[in-house]
Amino acid sequence: MKRYLFPLILGVLGTAILVWLGVWQLQRLDLKEDMLARIQSRIDAAPVPLPANPDPSMKYDPVTVSGMTTGEEIDVLSGTKEQGGGYQIVSGFVTDDGRRIMVDRGFVPQDDRHAPRPPVRLDITGNLHWPDEKGSSTPDPNLSENIWFARDVPAMAAQLGTQPILVVASFVRGDAQGVQPIPVAIEGIPNNHLSYAVQWFMIAVAWAGMTAGLIWRIRQRKY
């Protein structure tokens, strides 16, 4: 019996830890789904005029702004399933009360990137946003070509000479100049906890199987 003890303890302990990791991921899944539901409720709330001093705690809040684009823009490398590669157009925007902010007007295909987009009056409904897109591996923007690889609100504001406020348009009234709005959506927020849980449970099954196989081999030994 002693020869079974160590592999049995190792097998039971390892399987228990792996199952616990799977359960932990399921618990995190519940928390993430609750968080996504709360974000969706904020996105879907009734829009209000742009607050006086927006800050990142207001991320996803729906707002309305009216004013003029400045004709200055930042082109963020992007793409859609329907149209393939292209750019998100982030424009400087002067509101009717004189505030300089930024508006993510939406998507243009690659071929329309250099189409003229002079200053135009727009009434925009959208959501405040502070995207967390820039990582350690994200290249710095190519300023000479005006190509950015992530939306970085402080850096874009410095480039366009605006406040660090970004409104992502969901509806535009006026001449959209061929730019298709891409509203803020929870689909872009990663939620992989279910797949992680399945992986941990599969590893637990494999661990238990290897333990059973090892014990079977021990039983087959002849002394």
Score class of each variant (00 low, 15 high):
Ala155Met: 05
Gln159Pro: 00
Arg151Leu: 01
Val168Trp: 00
Gln159Cys: 06
Ile165Phe: 10
Ala150Lys: 07
Pro164His: 03
Asn142Thr: 09
Pro139Asn: 08
Thr162Gly: 13
Arg151His: 02
Asp132Ser: 15
Met156His: 12
Ile165Asp: 09
Pro131Val: 06
Ala150Gln: 05
Glu145His: 10
Ile165Lys: 14
Pro141Trp: 06
Ala155Gln: 11
Val167Ser: 01
Arg151Ala: 01
Ile147Leu: 12
Val168Pro: 04
Asp132Tyr: 00
Asp152Tyr: 06
Val167His: 03
Pro164Arg: 09
Phe149Met: 06
Glu133Ile: 07
Ala150Gly: 08
Ser144Pro: 03
Asn146Arg: 07
Val168Gly: 04
His129Glu: 11
Val153Trp: 08
Pro141Leu: 07
Pro164Trp: 04
His129Trp: 06
Ser144Val: 05
Met156Phe: 12
Asp140Met: 09
Gln163Val: 00
Arg151Ser: 01
Pro139Gln: 06
Pro154Phe: 01
Pro164Leu: 02
Lys134Arg: 15
Phe149Trp: 09
Asn142Phe: 00
Pro141Ala: 10
Pro139Ala: 06
Ile147Arg: 15
Ala155Cys: 04
Gln163Ser: 10
Thr138Trp: 00
Gly135Asp: 14
Lys134Ser: 09
Asp152His: 14
Ala157Val: 07
Arg151Trp: 01
Leu160Gly: 06
His129Tyr: 10
Ala155Arg: 15
Gln159His: 14
Met156Ser: 14
Gly161Lys: 08
His129Val: 11
Ser136Met: 11
Ser144Gln: 13
Arg151Thr: 14
Glu145Met: 09
Val153Lys: 14
Trp130Tyr: 11
Pro131Ala: 06
Ala158Arg: 15
Pro141Gly: 11
Thr162Asp: 13
Phe149Leu: 05
Trp148Ala: 02
Gly135Ala: 08
Thr162Cys: 11
Ile165Val: 15
Thr162Lys: 11
Ala150Pro: 09
Ser137Pro: 07
Leu166Lys: 12
Glu145Tyr: 00
Pro164Lys: 09
Gly161Asp: 01
Met156Thr: 03
Pro164Cys: 01
Gln163Met: 10
Pro141Tyr: 06
Lys134Asn: 09
Pro141His: 12
Gln163Glu: 15
Val153Met: 11
Arg151Cys: 03
Pro154His: 07
Asn146Cys: 06
Pro139His: 08
Phe149Arg: 04
Leu143His: 10
Val167Asn: 05
Pro164Tyr: 05
Trp130Asp: 13
Asn142Tyr: 03
Ala150Phe: 00
